[in-house]
């Protein structure tokens, strides 16, 4: 990627990249598009157990056949889960968003209520309803050969406007928000891009390829790990928190000095 970038100034480079990219996209398309429930092996037993869990915990909103439900006035109680895939279940249940405590603008991240095994069984059941994105495997998340620069670039163009450049989160309309990404598991970030939970748009592999997603995940992990070389990051919210800090902590220190200076010695 770096080599490509360096050559970009050649007039013909664009054509070369375009051709390469076309081939790559085509290849990726072929390789990743049909990723579905079949890519992961779930036993019939998993599916059956998952169905039990589903009926007990989810069916009240999503319907007994996961077909989705509406209340009397036509508002959606829970959307249809046919075709959302195992990834959606793993994300929603694995981050504790589902089962939802009460309806509101948006489901919140909270400690998961199902253990890993139960989450897997639920995922198996939902995956069996129709083809959809599967849970990414280790390889898809490996940051070993990831291109951080590419990940950062994709993140800034596609994600930072909602999640903030540092992944600190941001506001959407009418009480909805894009959550903070710090401390979120890699696979959950990946699944969120793939399935577009709640108001987040879907970034399937046709939009951001599997390797690009891996780069984004790796970039976020790198941001987390590198810390803040300048010191306390103040939540990475930028100039506002910096200004608040100047008006509170720094001003208090200065006032303290001034009062000491102006007071008569004992």
């Amino acid at each position: 990627m770096k080599a490509l970038a360096a050559r970009r100034h050649h007039p013909l480079a664009f054509v070369a990249i375009l051709l390469l990219a076309l081939v790559a996209t085509g290849g990726l398309y072929a390789a990743f598009q049909p990723r579905s429930a079949q890519a992961e092996s779930y036993s019939q037993d998993d599916v059956d157990k998952g169905e039990e869990l589903f009926l007990a915990n989810c069916a009240s909103c999503h319907g007994t056949n996961a077909q989705g439900m509406q209340d009397d006035s036509g508002n959606t109680l829970g959307p249809s889960l046919i075709g959302v895939g195992a990834a959606a279940v793993d994300f929603q249940v694995g981050t504790g968003r589902m089962p939802m405590q009460n309806s509101g603008a948006q489901a919140w991240r909270k400690p998961p209520q199902m253990n890993d095994e139960q989450t897997r069984q639920l995922a198996a059941y939902v995956a069996s309803l129709g083809p959809g994105p599967s849970v990414p495997d280790e390889e898809a998340l490996s940051s070993k050969d990831a291109d951080l620069e590419n990940g950062g670039n994709i993140f800034r163009v596609n994600c930072a406007m909602c999640h903030n450049a540092a992944g600190a989160g941001g506001a959407l309309t009418r009480g909805k928000f894009a959550p903070s990404l710090s401390g979120v598991e890699s696979k959950h970030i990946y699944e969120a891009m793939e399935t577009g939970p709640q108001n987040m748009p879907v970034f399937n592999d046709d939009n951001i390829s599997a390797s690009d997603k891996r780069d984004v995940v790796a970039y976020l992990k790198a941001l987390d790990e590198q810390g803040s070389p300048g010191g306390i990051s103040l939540g990475s919210f930028g100039p506002v928190t910096e200004g608040l800090y100047a008006w509170t902590i720094v001003l208090s220190l200065l006032v303290g000095c001034a009062v000491w200076l102006g007071a008569k010695a004992k």
């Binding site: 970009r8 100034h9 050649h10 007039p11 480079a13 664009f14 990249i17 375009l18 990219a21 076309l22 790559a24 996209t25 398309y29 590419n150 670039n153 994709i154 163009v157 596609n158 577009g196 748009p201 879907v202 970034f203 399937n204 046709d206 939009n207 690009d212």
Partner: peptide
């Protein structure tokens, strides 16, 4: 074309409820 890597977008690739950040073909850094 896609904003970040300059690859063109097929209509069939644009899934429901997705958003693509795009730029015109041929707009290059040089």
């Amino acid at each position: 074309t896609r904003d970040t890597d300059g690859t063109p977008v097929k209509a069939s690739e644009v899934a429901m409820n997705s958003i693509f950040h795009v730029m015109p073909e041929g707009l290059t850094e040089d």
